[in-house]
Design a protein around this nucleic acid. Structure first.
Lengths: 326, 326
DNA sequence: ATGAAAGCGCTAACAG
DNA sequence: CTGTTAGCGCTTTCAT
């Protein structure tokens, strides 16, 4: 910039004015500066700008795994809102590891992102307190923050699971399984709670062997399904706790002679063709809502942290309407 | 940092040494500094650091759409490599708009990312020349750069499409359609070329009505398929040019009484259950290879720009082995 | 082993 | 309308 000023024979500030399209420059000098910029191939160094202005015009998004089809649309939605506000998006995958989540979040804070959207892996976010106090706006998505007060945008996991289970009950099922993610994950716990509530509503007792929580690795889920179906009084329907589980269950049931009803949490591409009944949440809306909330905070709106819950929708496609076998 | 120094009663540089774990500090003073850091909740401002050091430890990834299931795994793979090198990932979606691509790329350059991985939307990247000359390492993925020399990591679109078409021919088809993306997109053009090559290899003439290129919007694709199947001598097989096209074609064929063979480019989740034969490319390998190449350049290795091509794999699952109808 | 001073590239606050 | 000065928070250089 110094060079540009020298070359154009003007002061430093004048160049700055031109670069930032600030008023107060004669068309003539502006032209001279522009020429100097062109010929020197000058481009403003945003790092220096950030240092001076205190705002980076970038926000961080920490999620579980960008390769998961649920998070792609969410991330894209966040990006669109950020773009509308002139901000860039830095994202990182925690791989469901609390340590890695913290590492990522703190790295983003060190870069002085203006705001942070976090899909938490851990359940204790007190490490974020100093950062939030220092002015980093933070919104949690999909799962609430642990041990601190913060904005959160969630799907109605409890209600969704409850309606899914109720749907199966309404179609005559009595022995219904729930296969979910690790219970420490908030959504998994909520969905389990929804399942239990629906069963209780119908006056149905739950056999312990019908509930299986743990890793969503295909082997684990496959074994769980196999065990449930091999029991003397096997379950006649399955409520799958998330998209990974649903996929594995579908694969397993396809190779299974006995018809078993299935309702999956989260919609999946091509689920329509496979006739899979699902409880759909709107990943893009989740991301959009969170990002909008974040930017509202960045614009200086200060209200108490609030939790927003988005509805889910049960989409019947066949698999959830199969009557009980036997 | 100034505050920390004051509080610990040491010089600025000593704090810097402690923060960066540089040698030359007595354990005792180090402890004092650590205490000051703790109590002040100090965290290094990376923006300032960047300004001084000239490296941001971040790389940019510009792709078409993060919500597309093809790019999620690619992005994640890039992220993992970046993480191994201590860098963060900033990504942006061009929405297949060359102007937006350029805008994003230049914004990333202004932030002084150390390197750039680009899945180009446009076909003229001369705007990048000054940046590359200024030291921004750049690797193109999925599609080559336009009008400049640069590293590129590609899938073998030509070979993949050729083998897909050959597969259909081997199963007795003679009237085979190709439905692809806009021809200005390199992969679309290459796949079309592969299709033509396979037909030529088999001595089959191609009727113009069998080829349809354009937007991958469901309506456009649906209409194209409908027109082809309504012809007096309809095609008996379809080669779909990418994952979006495949999905739409599958939906349409599912509602169709006449059996039509299908081979899709790109694997899709649950394609195994639907029995869709595909030409699979390894999105994660694409991302990983590109990122590794980028970091090799950042580590100072300077060789001539090179184009790497990764193989594709034809996975027969049923839809591609349907014999010709009639 | 430690610190003082200079400066990375930019912008805010004042002059002129 | 334009330029000068100071300083954002850090690292580098060179003394001490």
């Amino acid at each position: 910039m110094k060079d540009v000023a020298a070359r154009a024979g003007v002061g430093l500030k004048t160049v700055s004015r031109v670069v930032n399209a600030e008023p107060g420059v004669t068309p003539d000098t502006e032209r001279r500066v522009q020429e100097a910029i062109e010929s020197l191939g000058f481009r403003r160094n945003d790092s220096a700008r950030v240092l001076r202005k205190g705002r980076t015009a970038s926000i961080g998004l920490v999620l579980e795994d960008l390769a998961d089809p649920f998070y792609g649309p969410l991330s894209r939605a966040v990006e669109e809102v950020a773009r509308a506000h002139g901000a860039l998006l830095i994202n990182g995958s925690s791989a469901e590891d609390p340590g890695r989540e913290q590492e990522l979040v703190l790295a983003l804070c060190a870069r002085r992102v203006d705001g942070l959207i976090v899909i938490p892996a851990g359940d204790d976010h007190r490490y974020l307190e100093p950062e939030i106090k220092a002015g980093v706006a933070t919104v949690f998505v999909d799962r609430p923050a642990g041990r601190i007060e913060a904005d959160a945008v969630l799907s109605d996991s409890f209600g969704g699971a409850r309606s899914g289970a109720a749907h199966l009950i309404a179609h005559g099922h009595r022995r219904i399984a729930f296969i979910g993610d690790q219970p420490r994950i908030h959504t998994a716990a909520e969905r389990l709670r929804g399942y239990r509530a629906a069963m209780a509503d119908a006056g149905l007792a739950i056999d312990d062997s019908w509930v299986s929580l743990g890793s969503t690795a295909p082997e684990r889920v496959r074994d769980a399904v196999a065990a449930m179906l091999a029991a003397p009084e096997p379950v006649t329907a399955i409520l799958a706790g998330n998209n990974r589980v649903t996929v594995t269950v579908v694969r397993h049931l396809a190779a299974c002679e006995r018809p078993v009803a299935l309702v999956g949490f989260d919609d999946i591409e091509l689920a329509d063709l496979l006739g899979i009944t699902v409880i759909a949440q709107d990943a893009a809306a989740l991301g959009r809502t969170a990002a909008e909330r974040l930017f509202r905070r960045l614009d200086g709106v200060s209200e108490a942290p609030r939790q927003v819950t988005l509805d889910t929708a049960l989409i019947p496609r066949g698999s959830g309407e199969i009557p009980p076998a036997g």
